[in-house]
Design a protein around this nucleic acid. Structure first.
Length: 592
RNA sequence: GGGGGUGUAGCUCAGUUGGUUAGAGCGCUAGCCUGUCACGCUAGAGGCCGAGGGUUCGAGUCCCUUCACCCUCGCCA
């Protein structure tokens, strides 16, 4: 070892010891006679002081030090003179008086200071990721990530889970997200696909008798990115045999409580609350509601049916719904212009036809350009239903149920943040359960799997597969943290007949099923135990536990929104020779 | 594919209704300074105003096209 201590380690206990530290020059303050260096490594900072006693040679060399030089310093730990102790530094009671200085490596002037206060633009941070990763904030996040992953591994290990690696080179399945494809050299014209998740493999492992499988698995989806979505991401993937939904949920409850305690120092009450999908859609308009605040959706369809206002009445008559939210005390905060902005938000982004609003005035009268279309009695009924009080802002969307969900969910989320309806430090963990098995796919005119084609229906709903698939509920469960989907899983079908029936509903012919998942169907026929599992989005856990608003900050080397790596400049062109070997020809820009 | 935002010195930003030589803070270079810790002081260097085209006597500023990054709708079983 060429160092005896780290830069975060020394305290008064080590005074008078000779030590050797290595690290990066965080800042240097040259006072002529004395030079002060803050030496930084992953563990902290230590002040190095070059005075006359350091010797002329060392002093001269110290004068040449610049930001981000990597140096090694040997010297004596000394107490700081009275009045110069730095309480903001863990090592602030001492400093090192060097007898030897070695420049291990110089640095170009960095495009930004890792120790600086101003955060540069993100593209610059991504290009010089090695400098960005030196920033204490980034190092904290990477360490948090490590803490979360190792906590997950320890937990699973204690519970007899077996860590099994599954292939990265698999076969493409047209269901679900777009695959990242890898061409085969040996089989020209054929392709592997990178896994969207190890779903099928983990089921096979249950059939193979491993009983409890776990993997920190990298997953790939070639879809457009978002603030909480990367094309490659990491899941804690697990699967268990001989379990039902509540076994999996209970297992993850324990993990949540443990990590909340270890990482955040927060006690979480178990069991975590569970809400059905239908209830979530009614109360919040979304299957991952943020339960840190109220402002729930309120249905006034029954009132709207009798209202004089044509827009409301017609919507209900056509089978739609009229629902609203009450932004408590927000009437003053939203001018006509502010409401116009909310209106264009829900109409342009979520397809709502409009946004009806009322400001609640003294005596609980409702003021709005559309108020004249209602009788006073009806306005009073609406106010009553909305629990309105003077100063409130009532917002309504009249539309198809799905549209009211999307628009009001988005409004609630936006208003909750703008009106600071919750403390960003609180953490809310909950489960959404009993998802529908199927969602009607308008585009293809058939049922689509809400989760994936191997999800088991609830035992009491199996008969609905043939009678009313839309009503059939799945043994599926999503973990929601602060309004973000942080994990999801299902109990799987282990009965080949039920599996065939589900394929049929999804429009997958027996031939297609055989071609795509023949191996799974075969395996299911050789003694498959009842099994189920879950996958947790590790990047999102880091984001939520670290209170970050961006998934890129949780990943050491993330991709941009266009799915490129600004540091390595991937993806890049390849040699013509490589393409020839793969039997691949690139089409021109004209598509030929 | 659609909507929105940003782009000016190495970095973070300001730049008026189009008008002389485009500024500030930080960083950088040099000098001075034993107690600083965002050290201080003095001096200096540093600009294709993202790129291309247009309007104009004149464009950082107005118009068109385009590129990059971010947010978002669609998409993400």
């Amino acid at each position: 070892m060429i160092r005896t201590h780290t830069c975060g380690q020394l305290r008064s206990d080590q005074i008078a010891q000779e030590v050797t530290l290595c690290g990066w020059v965080d800042s240097y303050r040259d006072h002529g006679g004395g030079i002060f260096i803050d030496l930084r490594d992953r563990y902290g900072k230590t002040q190095i002081v070059f005075g006359p006693e350091s010797g002329a040679e060392n002093h001269e060399l110290a004068r040449t030090l610049r930001s981000e030089f990597v140096i090694s310093v040997t010297g004596t730990v000394a107490p700081r003179p009275e009045g110069t102790v730095n309480p903001r530094l863990a090592t602030g009671e001492i400093e090192v008086r060097p007898t030897r200085l070695e420049i291990l490596n110089k640095s170009l002037t960095p495009p930004f200071q890792p120790g600086g206060k101003e955060l540069p633009n993100e593209d610059l941070r991504l290009k010089y990721r090695y400098l960005d990763l030196r920033r204490p904030e980034m190092q904290n996040t990477i360490l948090l990530r490590h803490q979360i992953i190792s906590g997950m591994r320890k937990y699973c290990n204690e519970l007899d889970f077996v860590d099994v690696e599954t292939p990265m080179l698999g076969r493409s399945t047209p269901e679900g997200a777009r695959d990242y494809l890898v061409p085969s050299r040996v089989h020209n014209g054929k392709f592997f696909a990178l896994p969207q998740s190890p779903q099928l493999y983990k089921q096979i492992l249950m059939i193979a008798g491993y009983d409890r499988y776990v993997q920190v698995a990298r997953c790939f989806r070639d879809e457009d990115l978002r603030a909480d979505r990367q094309p490659e991401f990491t899941q804690l993937d697990l699967e268990m045999s001989f379990v039902d939904s509540s076994d999996i949920i209970g297992l993850i409850d324990g993990l949540v409580a443990r990590l909340a305690r270890e990482v955040l120092g927060q006690e979480v009450k178990l069991p975590l609350p569970r809400m059905t999908y239908d209830e979530a859609m009614e109360r919040f308009g979304h299957d991952a509601p943020d339960l840190r605040f109220g402002m729930e959706l309120v249905d006034i369809s029954d009132l709207a049916r009798e209202a004089e206002f044509r827009v409301f009445r017609a919507t209900v008559d056509e089978g739609g719904r009229v629902r609203g939210i009450n932004a408590k005390g927000a009437a003053a905060a939203y001018s006509r212009k502010g409401i116009d902005e909310l209106t264009s938000y829900v109409t342009q982004d979520f397809g709502a036809k409009g946004l009806a609003w009322f400001k609640v005035e003294e005596g609980r009268t409702l003021a709005s350009p559309i108020a004249k279309n209602f009788t006073p009695a009806m306005l009073e009924k609406i106010a009553e239903r909305m629990d309105a009080a003077p100063g409130d802002l009532l917002l309504f969307v009249a539309d198809r149920f799905e549209v009211t969900c999307k628009a009001l969910y988005a409004l609630r989320k936006r208003l909750g943040e703008a009106l600071k309806l919750y403390d960003p430090a609180t953490m809310n963990f909950s489960w959404i359960v009993e998802f529908p098995m199927f969602a009607w796919d308008e585009e293809n005119g058939c049922w689509g799997a809400m989760h994936h084609p191997f999800t088991a229906p609830r035992p009491q709903d199996v008969a609905l597969l043939s009678s009313d698939p839309g009503k059939c509920r799945a043994q599926a469960y999503d973990l929601v943290i602060n309004g973000t989907e942080a994990g999801g899983g299902t109990i799987r079908i282990h009965d080949p007949q039920v599996q065939q029936q589900v394929f049929g509903l999804l429009g997958i012919t027996p031939e297609q099923a055989r071609e795509r998942f023949g191996f799974l169907l075969d395996a299911l026929a050789y003694g498959a135990p009842p099994h189920g599992g879950i996958a947790l989005g590790i990047d999102r856990w880091v984001m939520l536990f670290g209170r970050l608003d961006n998934i890129r900050d949780c990943i050491a080397f993330p991709k941009t929104q266009k799915a490129t790596d600004l540091m390595t400049e991937a993806p890049g062109a390849v040699d013509a020779k490589q393409l020839r070997e793969l039997g691949i020809q690139i089409r021109g820009a004209d598509g030929r």
